[in-house]
Amino acid sequence: MANLSMTVNGKSVTATVDPRTLLVQFLRENLRLTGTHVGCDTSQCGACVVHLDGKAVKACTTLALSCEGASVTTIEGLANGGTLHPMQEAFREHHGLQCGFCTPGMIMSAVDIVNRRGNSLDEKTIREDLDGNICRCTGYHNIVKAVAAGAEAMGKGAAPVRQAAE
């Protein structure tokens, strides 16, 4: 067992973990943050994407201990109280999900794309940069639309229009 401390969604957390613990296991099982999903566990699907020091990574392929001292943001860290993050709101508005399994990873990846490439994204860029996220339901069209709209809304600092608990 080894000691671990990091910041998750702005709160500092400490724990004693088996070195084998993956970041995604630590988030889901220790912290009960179950918004981060495990789709494949083989680095292919992107359901487990979180931000590690501001960069999108696959939490199924990162050891929790490698994140000692780091800052992690999960899907639970995006909304502002009851108000959805503009990217979350855009996914709802544009029907960017069906079963929703891939959605946390999609949204974390989408925010990462905006962080890297800015607020005005064309379809080709979005599709290329969603390369590491697989959706079995939607056929991607509405996801691409949602990402473009969410990116733009993030630029406007748009006050999201609806409440999460609606």
């Binding site: 994407v49 999108a56 990574v57 696959k58 392929t61 990462d112 390369d131 590491g132």
Partner: peptide, 9 residues
Amino acid sequence: IGDPHVRHR
């Protein structure tokens, strides 16, 4: 190489 997440690691 890989995808954006892989390239971050």
